[in-house]
Design a protein around this nucleic acid. Sequence first.
DNA 1: TATTGTATTGAACGGGCGTTCATATAATCT
DNA 2: AGATTATATGAACGCCCGTTCAATACAATA
Lengths: 195, 195
Amino acid sequence: MARKTGSHSEITGPRIRDAAQKLFARHGFAAVSMRQIAAEVGVQAGALYLYTPDKETLLLDLLKTHMDDLIADWVSADPGGAPAARLEAFVRFHIRFNLERADAVFLSYMELRNLGAENFAAIEILRRDYETRLESILSEGAAAGVFALQDAKIAAFAIIAMLTGVNTWYREGGRLSRAAVGDLYWDMVRRSVAA
Amino acid sequence: MARKTGSHSEITGPRIRDAAQKLFARHGFAAVSMRQIAAEVGVQAGALYLYTPDKETLLLDLLKTHMDDLIADWVSADPGGAPAARLEAFVRFHIRFNLERADAVFLSYMELRNLGAENFAAIEILRRDYETRLESILSEGAAAGVFALQDAKIAAFAIIAMLTGVNTWYREGGRLSRAAVGDLYWDMVRRSVAA
DNA sequence: TATTGTATTGAACGGGCGTTCATATAATCT
DNA sequence: AGATTATATGAACGCCCGTTCAATACAATA
């Protein structure tokens, strides 16, 4: 009993990442063993090392992929043009993107501490990049007089934290639809920076 | 070599909780061993079991104490009276309280998942209590016409998430004082709910 | 169909885990 | 001073950890 019938690296690889993301988000990086991940995939623990050099790199790949996707998706969702329209697009984009990837978002906030210093720094740079994109919209709007704010950087932090918070309470099939949540948050964000 | 000179439960007990809180926040509950906590205190692992029945209960005690303190401190900080004044007090209180207890706050958000179902539920009730206190201020202000908001519960979630986010970026000795941060956030919160 | 390369097993490695307990010493009480 | 109680040690329990690797079964190629 060695190689299994129908086994392919293009199948097993993604399944390992999916299982790891789900389990890390549910129980925490340190609480999940390589054997648990392997069991979820239906494989022995040793097989995981065909796909990752070690456990920390598996986590790093998940975090890096998430941040890369976040930035790339925002770049294509950004309508450009007037700051107010771009800010509204940002609010709706951030909520939608994060709700679609609750596990990855949770991981990215909670498990950074399990990375070594240089891996940590690499992820932080990506996060800072994303934050700066929002900050630029705010600064531009303030310069144009359509927003009134005292500190664009802090406003960006505040808005992102507020929007990311949706993930802690939103439940599919609950009182509010995703669109309704977008409307509510856009209303609050708009007023908090309105000139 | 058994009992150490100068040993007292009133001393060792708090030192164990302090060490556990610091290490859990830094590395995660599952990643920290009882032996590491004991070493931080300067005692052997077995001695910890004089102070807690097991590791999970140690975590539960930290989370429960934090939430109890949060509610009790807000109850005494709440000025009562006009909703706008109460909301301002809440904003400044939440930021100050959380910055003073960064480790406990981080734990309360990240390590709930390491609790069993009934312990989890007990902490959730306390969190809901705190959230409801803010929600009441918002509802009261909306009814009095001093606030304009579409949904008091969601507004409360949004405000708390925004304020708690300060902990992720604030650094002592940085560009902004705590008081300045309070001013900035109060300005944004005020405008987001202003009538 | 024979061969080559890929994907996987399963056992093993040294080590750390949470927890228990018999034992011993320090502090306190009578 | 002597007896009692509180506080701690340190060794041991069985178990699970991340990781490695020779052996092997399947898939792809020729």
